[in-house]
Design a protein around this nucleic acid. Structure first.
Lengths: 215, 215
DNA sequence: ACTCTGTTGAACTCATGGGTTCAATTTAGC
DNA sequence: GCTAAATTGAACCCATGAGTTCAACAGAGT
């Protein structure tokens, strides 16, 4: 063994396994032995790569946060080259975001963050700032462009983005009982459609807003 | 001792102390001895009233949830007899709700719920169902009345309530970094005003909606 | 073949903390 | 004052789990 590649693979396996176990058990109840098992590795190997249980936790959270963020940014794609039907584009983005948010790893990340924010205040910096913050920022950029193009009426793009995300995530969170209950695709789409409807009433350009649409 | 009153007082002190310590340390890291100290009581007394650490946790959470719910329902008061200025009434309710949501105990309750939902799935029933659920329900009732009175246009009051709360809580949650950062009164009011603005665009009666208000 | 580095499993140390026991003490009600 | 129930503090038992040690082992480069 001992090749650089091998080491990196082990390290990655450890971080993945760690996140899996932390997600299942929480920080305190997760035991390092179980993490080692999950990663297919011996306990001392874990301590060889990550000094502490605490640093193990930090790195696992950071890695998970990074991968979640990537997916989310990618979900904004349809808004960079929006088609003729803006409503459809927004609903598409909403549907994607909501599915990512309801994903198991994503839920687990949020849960762990909430749970351990008291004991690891520094993790907030690593995760939130490269989480909702960046997503909201990127979304605001798109909304600003759409407003300049006269297809939207978001004078304050940051607030528009904030409200768009709130209208998506809030209802999802309450209906899924904080990620406990699984939600069917139909209901997810309905949540996204409803969010877009309210959003367009508030921020749609005159012609698009459609005070009394379909429903 | 042994008088009924005395027992109840001790029990209440224990539950309060338990919630305080759990909020500070999380379930796993909280030790019963510390809870006993916080409650000004000996350790065996704790076990005399509540059999387990687990049941102690459950009862503490339930008690906290109950008190939080009461406050929230009371905050809806201004909507039962709304004055002539509906926007002002909604902003008042929004400001109250947002302050309650940002309250320390409330944040701690949410954190603990998120944190231990995996180990105590039954707590969700005791808390959520008598938490956001009931609040959303009560709010929907008010919105329905306002719609019947022609002062609002909430065809689906449940969804309107859902979106109103989402517009309040979502931005609060992101800006307060999940309850970590303290937020000034001015910013809280601004969040509430913005939420009401978007809400009225979507659900305001024709005359009230005011597509381009003040800002 | 030799070596160096990383891995492994098992055993070990040690601190923490849940839960119990018990004798001494308090307190309420009579 | 007497009794019975509740409280108290201290000591105790025991399981769990973090982190370490170590001897044996595997593989890559020379």
């Amino acid at each position: 063994m001992a090749t650089a590649r091998g080491r990196i693979d082990k390290r990655q396996a450890i971080l993945d396994g760690a996140f899996t176990v932390f997600a299942r058990q929480g920080y305190a109840q997760a035991c390092v032995q179980e993490i080692a098992n999950e990663a297919g590795v011996a306990k001392p190997t874990v301590y060889n790569h990550l000094t502490d249980k605490a640093t193990l936790f930090r790195h696992a959270m950071q890695a998970a946060a990074r991968s979640v963020l990537e997916q989310r940014l990618a979900a904004l794609q349809p808004l960079t080259e929006p088609g003729p039907d803006l409503r459809a584009g927004l609903e598409e983005v909403g549907a994607r975001l909501i599915r990512l948010h309801a994903d198991d790893r994503s839920c687990a990340l949020r849960r762990l963050l909430y749970a351990e924010i008291t004991h690891f205040p520094d993790i907030l910096g690593l995760v939130v700032e490269s989480g909702p913050q960046r997503l909201s920022q990127a979304l605001a950029d798109r909304l600003a462009r759409l407003t300049l193009a006269g297809r939207l009426n978001a004078t304050d793009p940051d607030q528009a983005a904030e409200h768009f995300l709130a209208l998506l995530i809030g209802p999802l969170e309450t209906r899924s009982q904080m990620g406990t209950r699984q939600i069917g695709d139909a209901e997810l789409d309905e949540i996204a459609r409803a969010a877009v409807r309210t959003f367009l009433h508030a921020f749609g350009a005159e012609g698009v807003s459609g005070r009394h649409p379909a429903g």
